[in-house]
Design a protein around this nucleic acid. Structure first.
Length: 279
DNA sequence: CGGCAAACCTGCGAGC
DNA sequence: TGCTCGCAGGTTTGCC
């Protein structure tokens, strides 16, 4: 479930449950996710107080009051839930559990195990190998059309593929790349380095609009619950193109000359777009 | 270096 | 009903 809006939704839900609380009990039920958990994983967290939850791109950063930072990536299927302790009753894919000093349990579930947890330090996290090459945060003021154009310059790959490259801009995945390009009226197949000037302004504005609307909706829920509280995000009801192959796009009348939303594959991922509206 | 397919892993829905 | 296939919100690796 995790692109920027979903991770931001998780961050907000976990912040409410964890900030200011002591991790009284931590346990990992397997030694690895996408990669091995760090040595002494549970011991290093147990007894520490959570200071603040941050997000960078699709990474969650759980900062402890002594400067230790837990980096979490949800992969494709990672979920965090907040609830009462489950007294040992766990789903087969519940891999890590945290219980706070007020008796709240945060559970990390990840069937596909593409997720990741590791540690870094508060004062050096921007230089961590997982984080240092990430592009700008798209919701920051500094992310402008000109800034985006500078990052796309010299890239001959399809625009959609470039948008999903976390070094170009951070936090955009398959859904929001498709939706942003539709909103901007730009073809996913256009060469990335042809986007500058007014086109880049349009695209940066579209990215900001789509992402902020999705955050306000609690993200998108495709096949499962996802907010830590168990509530569902509802931005999936506002998709213009994603997952809508064959249907008319919102701006095209059914049965018009527009052939409807098309699905193609780019760099191994499905792309959905309206060939009439996106050039 | 740039770009792409494959790999990592499990679950689910469609089609036979 | 039960099997196989294709597909899924991401990132890394390895090959051209």
């Amino acid at each position: 479930m995790p692109e920027l809006p979903e991770v931001e939704t998780v961050r907000r839900g976990l912040a409410a449950a964890l900030e200011g609380r002591v991790l009284a009990w931590v346990r990992a039920f397997r030694p690895d996710l996408r990669r091995p958990l760090p040595p002494n994983f549970s011991e290093r967290l147990t007894g520490r107080r959570v200071k603040r939850l941050w997000r960078r791109a699709k990474y969650l950063l759980v900062e402890m009051d002594d400067g230790l930072v837990l980096i979490v990536h949800l992969g494709m299927s990672g979920r965090m839930t907040v609830g009462r302790p489950t007294a040992g009753v766990l789903d087969a894919h519940d891999h890590v559990a945290f219980v706070t000093d007020d008796g709240t349990q945060v559970t990390f579930r990840d069937p596909r195990r593409f997720g990741l947890m590791t540690f870094c330090d508060r004062d050096s996290w921007p230089g961590h190998p997982l984080l240092r090459d990430l592009g700008p945060e798209p919701l920051d003021e500094a992310f402008t059309g000109a800034a985006l154009a500078a990052r796309l310059a010299g890239r001959r790959s399809p625009l959609k593929t470039a948008l999903m490259d976390q070094r170009v801009v951070a936090g955009i995945g398959n859904i929001y790349a498709c939706e942003s390009l539709y909103r901007a009226g730009l073809s996913p197949r256009r060469r990335a380095d042809t986007v500058s000037g007014a086109r880049a302004d349009r695209l940066a504005a579209a990215i900001k609009a789509v992402l902020s609307e999705a955050v306000a909706a609690g993200g998108s829920t495709l096949r499962d619950h996802q907010q830590p509280s168990g509530e569902l995000g509802y931005f999936q009801h506002r998709f213009a193109v994603y997952g809508r192959e064959g249907q008319p796009c919102p701006a095209c009348v059914p049965g018009s000359s527009c052939g409807g939303i098309r699905r193609i594959v780019q760099a191994g991922r499905s792309t959905f777009f309206c060939a009439k509206r996106q050039r």
